[in-house]
């Protein structure tokens, strides 16, 4: 802990305040000011310039009736559920690495898991966009190669998806409304998150040897071991990751923006709340309305963060 100081000492050390002033100024100007400004401007019709017109709560009531905005929350809900499942590979990876005997291998696998981070996230995203390309994309040529395409065509016919997959026609993953959300879910396969794996590994490290030994004596299968020993012990980490994932998903819109464009792709199926805010501000020039939308998101995320701090980080 920092040392408590007497008044005299504090007066003597007054120069110490210069240490905090730069950070304080930066935080005040670039973090507090924009937030307060967003609250203030959400009551205005504002085009981003000097002219603004006070309109009371009109922006908020418009947001409440904004079908696109609330539809975007539905999309987010789907993506959050999908992202829950997309955590499985990271957990599996962590458990696999943890169960290895060789520490050398453990270290090198850890490095390999981190390796994809050296590709800028934008590059990964554009490579995936290229995978989705109907003519040259790897995804279509993979489906053709493995014959999965004919399976999808049959399913299309059987379940009446309305001709999403057609014989001899390249599937437009990012061009067909019904495929937008599936494409957003497939994106990033096999969904290994470097941060997630490392955090789960840290959690697994706390498992004592004797637990495993006891389990071995009882002759439990590897999967039972996971269910009864490993998973309960990393529950804290899993909960942490779930909340972080939810916050991240709710806040993020770069992926949708770059893959699908500012309208959320065909039929607007990929529209997420953050993207709608960005769209209103920087495409439609409705900065005041965008501030109001931002505040709704702000409130949602704030609640999630509080839940996180209250229930999940306690054990840290």
């Amino acid at each position: 802990m920092s040392l408590p100081v007497s008044k005299q000492k504090a007066l003597y050390e007054w120069k110490l305040y210069f240490f905090i002033i730069p950070s304080l100024l930066l935080v005040a100007v670039f973090a507090y000011w924009p937030t307060l400004s967003a609250i203030y401007h959400s009551f205005f019709r504002w085009g981003g310039g000097d002219n603004k017109e006070f309109i009371g709560l009109a922006n908020f009531s418009r947001a409440l009736q904004d079908g696109v905005f609330w539809g975007a929350f539905l999309t987010i809900a789907i993506l959050v559920v999908a992202n829950l499942f997309k955590m499985i590979p990271s957990i599996a990876m962590a458990v696999l690495i943890h169960r290895l005997r060789s520490e050398r291998w453990q270290y090198w696998y850890r490095v390999l898991v981190v390796l994809p981070m050296i590709v800028p996230s934008l590059v990964t995203l554009f490579i995936w966009k290229f995978f989705f390309n109907p003519n040259m994309g790897a995804l279509n040529s993979f489906l053709d190669l493995t014959g999965l395409k004919s399976l999808l065509i049959a399913a299309d016919k059987a379940f009446g998806w309305g001709g999403v997959f057609l014989d001899g026609i390249p599937t437009a993953w990012l061009g067909e409304p019904a495929l937008v959300i599936p494409a957003l879910i497939i994106w990033g396969f096999p969904w290994l998150g470097a941060v997630g794996v490392l955090i789960f590994l840290a959690g697994l490290q706390s498992i004592g040897t004797e637990v495993y030994e006891a389990a071995d004596l009882d002759g439990v299968t590897p999967f039972q071991k996971f269910l009864h020993i490993e998973f309960p012990l990393i529950m804290t980490q899993v909960r942490l990751m779930v909340v972080l994932m939810m916050i991240g998903t709710l806040q993020g819109y770069g992926l949708q923006f770059l893959l699908l464009g500012e309208d959320g792709g065909p039929g607007g199926r990929g529209m997420v709340p953050g993207l709608w805010m960005f769209n209103r501000a920087f495409f439609a020039g409705e900065f005041g309305y965008a501030c109001a939308l931002g505040l709704f998101l702000f409130a949602f995320i704030l609640v999630l963060t509080m839940i996180n701090n209250k229930f999940i980080r306690v054990e840290k």
Binding site: N133, P134, N135, G163, L166, I169, P170, A172, G175
Partner: peptide, 19 residues
């Protein structure tokens, strides 16, 4: 036109033709 052309982007249709 090719079935499903309403799904194809501008570049994709051009690519189809050029091929």
């Amino acid at each position: 036109m090719q079935p499903g052309f309403l799904q194809l982007g501008r570049d994709d249709a051009a690519f189809y033709f050029v091929q």
